[in-house]
Amino acid sequence: MVSYRQTEDLSASAEITYLNMRSYYEHYSVDWDCSKIEDQIHNLTNFDILLNGEVVGAIRLAFDNVGCYVRDLQVSEKYQNKGIGALALSECERLAIESGANRLRLRVFKVSPAFHLYERVGFVVDNVDDRFYSISRTIS
């Protein structure tokens, strides 16, 4: 069973992101490590994704006058392609609606297979740069 809770250990959460994103950082020659990730996520709304009580991923959200920005949605490699990311995205939407937001936004590396999940659930490309697709979806 998939569930969510406020992140209890930002360092462990940053490690999930680093392990998942390391190949993208290397691909684009981005110099990141766990301490930099932890610094970046400290002021975000952070949730652990749990599968049967075990932390298997992370959700990080930021809210502004445009809506809810999904700063990070990570599922540990061992648990990918099992529907957990799609469920977590639904949880992001629920949290965004609960906060009064009517739009979800995020950026995804162009080389990330997660882009196909976002496309499948209705996100559209708003902007493209050399590394990222900036995408969004209206929610209600």
Rank of each mutant, 00 (worst) to 15 (best):
N81F: 10
G83Q: 05
C68E: 00
G83H: 01
A101G: 07
V70N: 05
E93Y: 01
I97C: 08
Q80G: 05
Q80P: 09
A96K: 02
I97G: 01
G85E: 06
S90M: 11
E91Q: 09
G85F: 15
C68T: 00
C68F: 05
Y79Q: 02
L89D: 14
I97D: 06
Y69A: 11
L89H: 10
K82V: 00
I97R: 15
Y79M: 05
N102V: 08
E91D: 11
S90E: 12
I97P: 13
Q74Y: 00
I84K: 11
L95Y: 07
Q74H: 06
S76Y: 02
L73Y: 00
G100N: 10
N81C: 11
L87T: 05
S99A: 13
K78T: 03
V70K: 04
E91N: 09
E77A: 11
K82G: 03
V75H: 08
V70M: 06
L87C: 14
G67W: 03
A96R: 05
G85D: 14
E77L: 14
C92G: 15
A101V: 01
A101N: 01
Q74T: 08
I84D: 14
S76N: 04
N102H: 07
A96V: 10
R94Q: 13
Q74F: 05
A101S: 12
R94Y: 09
N65T: 09
E93H: 05
R71F: 05
